[in-house]
Write a protein that binds this DNA or RNA. Sequence first.
DNA 1: AAGACGAAAGTGGTTGA
DNA 2: TCAACAACTTTCGTCTT
Length: 316
Amino acid sequence: MTDMVRIRKRDENKGNACLNCGGTLFTEDYVRGENICTSCGLVLSEHTADSGPEWRAFTTEERNARARVGAPMTLTIADRGLSTTIGWQNKDANGRALTSTTRAAIYRMRKWHIRSKLHSSQHRNLSIAMSEMERISSQLGIPRDVRETAALMYRKALSKRLVRGRSIESVVASSVYLACRIHRIPRRLDEVVAETNANRKQVGYAVRLIVSRINIDVPLASAKDLIPRLSSDLLLEGRTVKKATEIIKNAEERFVTIGKDPGGIAGAALYIAGILEEDRRTQREIANVSRVTEVTIRNRYKELIRVLRISINNNS
DNA sequence: AAGACGAAAGTGGTTGA
DNA sequence: TCAACAACTTTCGTCTT
């Protein structure tokens, strides 16, 4: 891409189509301040406003600690933020006092308006559940769109009467957990349960119940999803991360990952990748961040190098 | 001294009768 | 409901770097 082309495009392109290939999709690269056509890579405008965060974060913890922005709330509020209320002053829009008959009518309307809203048991349930959900997910650092999914899930569970006879908390916890699974956010059930008063067994049961009764695809947790989180905590280099992802992909193709703790697989893959790429971490370091023991890392690692025929020459 | 290895015993969850 | 089972953990002694 020459400078000449860039300048010409910036001057001429006032519409929405790329002048080079006619594509209409652009990505905004706010690190470089450029607008880029996704199909041909043409830079359409430079020095765009930086809409990204002003902070930088290098590990998962830092990101969780610093991220503080989100979209406007919708499903996560019991009334979706759409309700209106009838004012309590007995005045009209011009500030004049109402006549007695109108005042009586307004009083009745207000009464039934409030009754229809708050006195519906489902609504009461929802408002408790949504504030609980908000608390849990902000504790866990869960992004806004995942919360939306969790809220949707809870609403479905509620409308199918799955909450009856179970604690609101346990169903909220399982909605959050399942939403994480759907969005491939690596959060284990224990982490979610730890933020609630519900016990693990109840939540586990609620999870299975929701999966069986609500028509949604819940992907199984894969070791691959854990790689970004673990490798940023271990400060591994890009090529090591890439290698580890490859190892997991191969392992999954050979069906050696089924029934195994994803943390163990991910940890072992990172360990092997670390040795191969000379970006090595000890078994203990990896075991700490992936929440399994060194023994499990060892077992998985032995298994992976046997099945994938990876030879490790320890001359480093 | 730190890291890696592997055996042995124990734990919590799943499966099938 | 219960026993069998696989996966994983804890603990610990030994070997290697």
